[in-house]
Amino acid sequence: MSCELVERDLDTYLDGELDTESSAAIREHVRTCAACHRQFAGREALARLVRGAPYYSAPHRLQARVLAQSTRSSSVRRLVAWAAAAVLVLSVGSGIALWGPASSRGNAVADEVVNSHVRSLMANHLFDVQSTDLHTVKPWFLGKLDFSPPVVDLASKGFPLIGGRLDYVGGRTVAALVYQRQKHTINVLVSPVGDDRSAGDLAVTVRGFNVRHWIHEGMSFWAVSDLNSAELGEFANALQAS
């Protein structure tokens, strides 16, 4: 691969949007070409800097206002619906029907996994045990489950473990391990294969969340996050390699 091509495709590569073959060619070139390596390192450093920019979370009062709006508009809707007898109910119902099949088109378990993720974030019930120390998190699961989930810290790969909890997915209790990447939370739900009939690797998007599934040493893993698909893939690889 020529330096011009590397320069052209460098951003696409770093954004995780380049095909596997060209990505390998870039990695190979950058290893041997000092000039391109400098360029590469510069762009990587820039990305790290920019990702450290402030993340502005929604103020609580905004959340409260939006919730109030949602409740108000739905009760108004109910009143109108009663009065207009079923006409509006039908249209609201069909709205949900249109939306429903789209979300169940993927995997039913993936849907449940996303629900679990959303629940954990919204109810502020992310942890039963909050610790960055895996020697605290691992024993916490002892006796609470009929299996022992593999607990590893991936802080060195940029995904620190921040805690764990029990969750309920697919009709059984599962171990939920919580990791973080910058401001993004990653939930990993682990249970023994066997209960989970989902076949091997899967990468889908459900309601704006990226979901990955894989099976490793007899355990079924579901990772879910609002992190982009490429970085969630990186996370999945790091977890499988550990």
């Binding site: 993340y55 502005y56 979370s57 929604a58 103020p59 905004l62 959340q63 939006v66 919730l67 949602s70 409740t71 508009s73 739905s74 809707r77 609201v92 709205g95 949900i96 939306w99 629900n115 959303v118 974030l121 919204m122 401001k183 309601r207 704006g208 609002d226």
Partner: peptide, 24 residues
């Protein structure tokens, strides 16, 4: 029902929406 589906679908992304709007 609709309000609940809305809340479950949209509210989890409120921080992201605010962050984007704040940068705009």
């Amino acid at each position: 029902m609709r309000a609940r589906v809305f809340e479950e679908t949209v509210l989890p992304h409120l921080d992201a929406a605010f962050n984007y709007a704040r940068w705009l």
